[in-house]
């Protein structure tokens, strides 16, 4: 098996995650799908690292994880406060700017 298959898998996971972001209305699930996309990227990065034979790709994946952790913290805080004020976690409900 060619390790390139890992990249195909990453692309597939990324596309699935993206469609989840676009389709789901529950903010938490949307957020999980974002995480899925990030993980797909990480898989691609790790594969690249293996491909090039150096560790830089892994470093970038590591940073991605750190940033994702920070993002999750803030994002979940936003969801919680949104839920607190609107009693709903639907992204469609946070549409005060619509006509």
């Amino acid at each position: 098996m060619n390790p390139v298959n890992y990249l195909y898998l990453a692309a597939l996971l990324f596309a699935i995650g993206a469609s989840g972001v676009l389709i789901r209305r529950n903010a938490i699930v949307v957020f999980m799908c974002v995480e899925l996309m990030l993980n797909a990227c990480n898989l691609a990065l790790v594969t690249f690292s293996r491909m090039h034979g150096n560790l830089d790709g892994q470093i970038v994946a590591f940073f991605t994880m750190v940033v994702a952790a920070a993002e999750v913290v803030v994002g979940l805080a936003i969801i919680v406060s949104l839920f607190r004020s609107r009693h709903s976690a639907s992204v469609d409900d946070a549409s005060l700017m619509k006509l």
């Binding site: 972001v21 209305r25 992204v91 946070a94 005060l96």
Partner: peptide, 13 residues
Amino acid sequence: QNGYARTYAVSMF
């Protein structure tokens, strides 16, 4: 501009 974040996300994507 219907105010739904998901619609905007689709156009971005």
